[in-house]
Design a binder for these strands. Structure first.
Length: 298
DNA sequence: AAGCAGCGCAACCGCAAGTGC
DNA sequence: AGCACTTGCGGTTGCGCTGCT
């Protein structure tokens, strides 16, 4: 190293500046919560991982007291197994994690890793993908063509249709009081995405935000990370891993082991979500929304 | 008590982007 | 523009702890 590249090793500590920074951000930084993850945190991680893939920094931005490293470790050591076990007992489909990119080789991952500058575009494209998935789902041949996550070559993250199902599900859960939607996240003082009128998603640990054009609601609210309140919803959060997306969607409206109130979707709240998902004419000519939801509810 | 395996967590590594000169 | 350095990120590794035999 000659002059030791970046800053000299700190006297006695044998740490370079990079190591020091890492240790600070992951371990020493004040405000970091350590140890047991709460049920709610766990569910949020599962949820976010399914939606965002292994973007730990982005996920961590929703859990301000946790570091990306912590979340990553927790995922790798606990949740992965948990979901695998769940899936095994659930028979068919792969877990959100495996459908994301955890099964890809390290080198492949490196090459596909998005640069920071591509975040916004990627998020936008995720939204587009979700829209397309819903469009697909609404189309008459949906149940045949919808490819479930995991296997799909083009599916970088968890099945988009599944995501939609989750979005809808959580949307339904949180619809009565708009203030409760995403409240868990917004409770934390440092979450930058609490303002319903500010359609931005925090990206990266630094709290910088990327504007995402979501009509009417914050992305957080749309995602509906409410999960009920803590333990109460714990049994219901086993995020539908199996079956076709349509079946999943169907299931989310039906009583799922008595997990939730399964009243019919409220028209008003549906229209908001639909407005977002269906806007820009992406669903032009598709089956009417009422047909879709009616079919789902049958 | 010793040996072993499994687990969890902190740290490391490599890459890409950002920044300043 | 080009270079050196910093920062941020995600994947991986190494080590200490724990439980089991």
């Amino acid at each position: 190293m000659g002059s030791m590249g970046f800053h000299q090793y700190f006297a006695g500590l044998l740490r370079c500046s990079k190591s020091c920074r890492l240790r600070w951000t992951n371990y020493l930084r004040p405000g970091i919560k350590r140890g047991n993850f709460t049920d709610h945190e766990e569910k949020m991680i599962i949820h976010l991982q399914a939606l965002l893939g292994n973007r730990w920094a982005a996920i961590a931005s929703y859990l301000p007291e946790r570091t990306d490293n912590d979340i990553k470790n927790y995922w790798n050591t606990h949740l992965k197994k948990k979901l695998t076990m769940t899936n095994n007992s659930d028979s068919s489909s792969p877990s959100p994690s495996s459908s994301a990119n955890s099964s890809i080789s390290s080198s492949t991952r490196k090459s596909t890793k998005p640069s920071r500058g591509q975040w916004e575009r990627r998020l936008q494209s995720d939204i587009q993908t979700a829209r397309r998935a819903l469009s697909h789902a609404i189309s008459p041949s949906s149940s045949v063509h919808l490819n479930h996550g995991g296997g799909g070559a083009g599916s970088t993250y968890a099945s988009s249709a599944d995501n939609i199902a989750r979005l809808l599900k959580d949307w339904m859960k949180n619809k009565p009081t708009s203030s409760s939607a995403g409240s868990k996240v917004c409770d934390s003082q440092s979450s930058p995405s609490c303002n319903d009128s500010a359609e931005s998603i925090p990206i990266g640990g630094g709290g910088e935000s990327v504007a995402v054009e979501l009509p009417g609601r914050s992305f957080n609210a749309l995602l509906g990370f409410g999960f009920g309140s803590g333990d109460g919803a714990s049994n219901c959060s086993d995020l539908s891993h199996s079956g076709s997306p349509v079946a999943t969607t169907k299931r989310m409206f039906k009583a799922e082991e008595g997990c939730e109130d399964v009243s019919h979707p409220d028209e008003a709240s549906l229209s908001l979500l639909e407005k977002w998902l269906l806007e820009e004419g992406s669903l032009t000519g598709a089956v009417g929304k009422h047909d879709f939801f009616t079919a789902v509810l049958e």
